[in-house]
């Protein structure tokens, strides 16, 4: 009897279920895709939810990022889905290619470290775009599960684990009267070089910042700074930074060009170079 009444109660709620919509966000307000797959800037996640959907729909995005550092190449590609402008799920594959330097490091030419990153994010409060009469930002909580495919090697380099979970809180605010976008993220992480060189025992809290200026409704230019831990014995790890320009061609395609400076990576000093991302979304 209880089951019958329960199922009877279900029927009206199902028949009244709203139609799921796609689209509806303003240009650029789904964010771009970080090299870790989460909606955000390039280096750091933002509190914005990926996809063009609003509270009544679903959306998605896919990206390819190519970073040409002085001696390394980083390629990342993945897809993400946004649900009701509330939840975000993402998967990204990172290939960190040692190219010629692989030989010098004794790994062999073109030796590649790959990391799979599965991300989830939930918007907790605020509307970064529309709440223009208050300082309250959009706030989101996210996790990134990362797994390296080079467990033996990263262990030999000093990592205690080939997988780890980052947890972060992001606060993002568009200050429309000044045409400015600001973001602050605080990350709890055990990763060495974001996980490319594995994970350690000791977690630390690392802040990350983005600031952007809206030149037009299609063009955002800005800079990012990501503090990083430095806990590997064999090689120094530096903070990362970039300057970027993101251009929304239309509601579906955004291209980003950046110049990144990532410092020392696996004993090779002063790595920097061009960073390009193509993001398609709906």
């Amino acid at each position: 009897m209880a089951m019958v009444s329960a199922s009877l109660l279900m029927v009206p709620s199902l028949s009244h279920a709203q139609q799921i919509e796609t689209g509806g966000k303003l240009l650029l307000t789904r964010g771009i895709s970080t090299f870790e797959g989460s909606g955000g800037g390039g280096l750091t996640p933002w509190a914005l939810i990926t996809g063009n959907e609003t509270n009544r729909g679903i959306g998605g995005s896919a990206h390819y990022t190519h970073v040409m550092l002085s001696d390394y190449q980083l390629r990342t590609y993945g897809a993400a889905a946004g649900f009701y402008d509330r939840f975000e799920l993402s998967y990204t594959r990172q290939d960190f290619d040692t190219q010629d330097i692989g030989t010098a490091l004794g790994l062999g030419e073109g030796y590649t470290f790959s990391v799979d990153v599965v991300g989830a994010k939930v918007r907790l409060a605020g509307n970064a775009v529309l709440d223009q009469d208050t300082w309250m930002p959009q706030v989101a909580l996210g996790v990134q599960y990362k797994k390296s495919n080079r467990g033996d090697l990263v262990a030999a380099l000093g990592a205690t684990n080939d997988e780890g979970v980052d947890v972060y809180v992001s606060a993002t605010k568009l200050i429309l009267s000044q045409s400015l976008l600001v973001n602050a993220t605080l990350r709890y992480t055990k990763a060495h070089q974001t996980g490319i060189l594995g994970f350690g025992d000791k977690a630390s809290l690392q802040p990350e910042f983005s600031v952007g200026y809206l030149v037009t409704k299609r063009l955002l230019v800005g800079a990012e700074y990501r503090f990083k831990p430095n806990k590997l014995a064999f090689a120094k790890e530096d903070d990362w930074m970039d300057i970027f320009a993101a251009y929304a061609i239309n509601p579906y395609a955004t291209v980003t060009l950046a110049y990144g400076m990532v410092g020392d990576v696996a004993t090779i000093a002063n790595q920097k170079g061009l960073y390009a991302t193509v993001q398609l979304g709906f």
């Binding site: 709203q18 009544r56 529309l130 709440d131 223009q132 000044q178 409704k217």
Partner: peptide, 22 residues
């Protein structure tokens, strides 16, 4: 000018709380 456009939009945007109902 785009910056002036944004100054008006900044004033209008929060009205979603009274206008968007579903």
């Amino acid at each position: 000018a785009f910056r002036a456009q944004n100054k008006l939009l900044a004033k209008l945007a929060p009205m979603y709380r009274d206008i968007v109902l579903r």
